[in-house]
C-alpha cells in the first residue's frame, strides 16, 4: 500500500490508541473541513449567479412579451387598414363614386392613419354596407 505523507501527522504516530485517532481526526477536520466549506461557498455563489441570470432573462422575456403584444395589435390595425383600402379600391373600380359616398370614402382615407382599432372596424362595416348597396344598385 502506498502511504501518502501529509503535514497533518506523521503516519508513524498512528497506532491503535484511540487518542491518536481522535487527534488525527481532529487534524483532518481542521485541514479538510474548510476545503469542503469553500466548495460549498463556491456553489452558493454559482447558485446566486444562476438566480440573478434567471431574473435578468425573465425581465428580458417580459419586455419581449410587451413588444410582441404591441406588434400583434399594430399588425391587426395595419391589416384592417389594408382591407379598408382594398375595399375602397374595389368600390372605385366597380363604379364612379360621387356625392355623399365619395365624401365618406375620402374622409375614411384621410383619417385612416390615426384611428384606433374599434374606429377602423366601424369604418370597415360602413364600407361593407356601401359596397352591398352599390352591388344591389347594379
Amino acid at each position: 500500500m502506498n502511504i501518502i505523507q501529509t503535514d497533518i501527522l506523521d503516519f508513524n504516530l498512528i497506532n491503535t490508541d484511540q487518542a491518536s485517532k481522535i487527534l488525527l481526526m481532529d487534524n483532518l477536520l481542521e485541514i479538510f473541513s474548510p476545503l469542503f466549506h469553500e466548495e460549498l461557498r463556491k456553489k452558493q455563489k454559482e447558485f446566486s449567479n444562476n438566480i440573478a441570470d434567471i431574473h435578468k432573462l425573465t425581465a428580458i422575456i417580459s419586455e419581449f412579451k410587451k413588444k410582441l403584444l404591441k406588434l400583434r395589435n399594430d399588425i391587426e390595425i395595419e391589416s384592417l387598414k389594408n382591407q379598408i383600402l382594398q375595399q375602397i379600391e374595389f368600390l372605385n373600380n366597380i363604379d364612379v363614386m360621387y356625392g355623399r359616398i365619395k365624401l365618406t370614402v375620402q374622409n375614411v382615407i384621410v383619417s385612416i392613419d390615426n384611428q384606433p382599432l374599434d374606429e377602423l372596424k366601424k369604418r370597415w362595416n360602413l364600407l361593407q354596407r356601401i359596397t352591398n348597396e352599390r352591388k344591389k344598385g347594379m
Binding site: I75, E78, I88, E89
Partner: peptide
Amino acid sequence: LTEKKRNFLIQNKKLKESLIAKLEM
C-alpha cells in the same frame, strides 16, 4: 412580426397614395 408590419405599412402607403390620386383628393 416586425417584417410583417413593415410590409403592411409599405403596401398601405402605396395603396393610399394610389387611391388619393384616383379620387382626385
